[in-house]
Design a protein around this nucleic acid. Structure first.
Lengths: 183, 183
DNA sequence: AAGCTTGTTCAGAAAATTTTGAACACCCTC
DNA sequence: GAGGGTGTTCAAAATTTTCTGAACAAGCTT
């Protein structure tokens, strides 16, 4: 059900008989958009593309669909889908009479961001917060004057940790709310 | 996961080139902490290390100081300092009677995050927002039924863009406020 | 159970990113 | 205007990340 009839020459694209993802098409533009967005979050381009092709499809897609439409390997597709599902960016559905798992996009920004944060920054932040505790003791070897400066830095560091942790639930609540008219 | 970073032996020799950044020391722990934090933001480890060594020092450091203490190349040091300055994570100061530029850490989380966001995600988001405008036209080729679904996806996408853009100033204001007593 | 279909794993290949180091440019000071 | 200190650039090397593809596992169906 995809548009085809791309009878034009493709000087660039491999003639593998696959990827009809030309720019200017709905799927092509969406995939491209998410591919770039993925880079904003330092995620592999393929992950963005996979989310894009799922987002662009009015019906749930299977691993094979994704692999075929994107022209990527099954390994990549499998790994990408698993990552997207782990961060909650896609949901799996099961159509009756079909053994394949199919995927639909998560459209709640709140859930999307929660998953992403949990996956990427949260572990590092947690680890850093832990390290913070051992630091004050290491200041003993410095002169009183130096210690004054370094202690204020340490306080700043603690404050960062505290602020970000307190901001997060707030921000997520905001993102969960419906959009109001511009004031 | 071990931090080999050269200098595995010789905790004694204080020769110029050696890196005395052992774990358990103030500098070592701070550098390590920021090296890990950098990875949380998908920045090169060296960038985190550079910020760390500057953060750990009670006095402003020069490029040479950084390069020597971290045991990295001048090229890396120069690039890292430039990046950190561009995102506003460090400030340059000039000590009288010294031609070298010296650097101190930015301790305002607000400024730190503003710079980081501006540098990393903002351009991508801006670009994506632009692309959004051309998308509705591409839906024409779909059936009415499909279009209903895809249009709602498009609305979600627009809403994301709008929400994140509106949340940002809000969040940054929050981060700029002094920390209040826990309530 | 044999034969499909669906999906995962993982070692090696490919690609992208980061680091190095030496050459270079730009002031200063003398 | 030579010499030395300070910092940047960039091509190539090292490292890390991502992708591939074929082998493998697990489940249905007959």
């Amino acid at each position: 059900m995809t548009k085809s009839t791309a009878a034009s020459a493709d000087p660039e694209l491999p003639t593998e008989g696959a990827s009809p993802l030309l720019p200017g098409t709905w799927e092509g533009e969406i995939v491209d958009l998410y591919t770039h967005l993925a880079q904003a979050f330092s995620l592999p381009k393929s992950v963005g593309a996979i989310f894009g092709i799922i987002f662009a499809s009015p019906t749930p897609l299977s691993l094979d669909d994704v692999v075929e439409r994107l022209g990527i390997s099954k390994g990549s597709g499998s790994a990408g889908l698993k990552l997207l599902q782990r961060v909650g960016a896609i949901k799996s559905t099961f159509l009756p009479g079909d053994r394949r798992t199919r995927y639909t996009p998560e459209t709640s920004l709140r859930r999307l961001l929660i998953g992403l944060l949990q996956e990427t920054v949260a572990p590092h932040l947690r680890q850093s917060a832990q390290r913070l505790e051992t630091l004050p003791a290491l200041l003993e070897e410095h002169s009183a004057e130096e210690r004054k400066i370094l202690e204020s830095r340490l306080r700043a560091l603690s404050a960062w940790e505290s602020k970000t942790r307190r901001l997060l639930p707030f921000a997520l609540a905001f993102l969960g709310k419906p959009l109001k008219k511009q004031g």
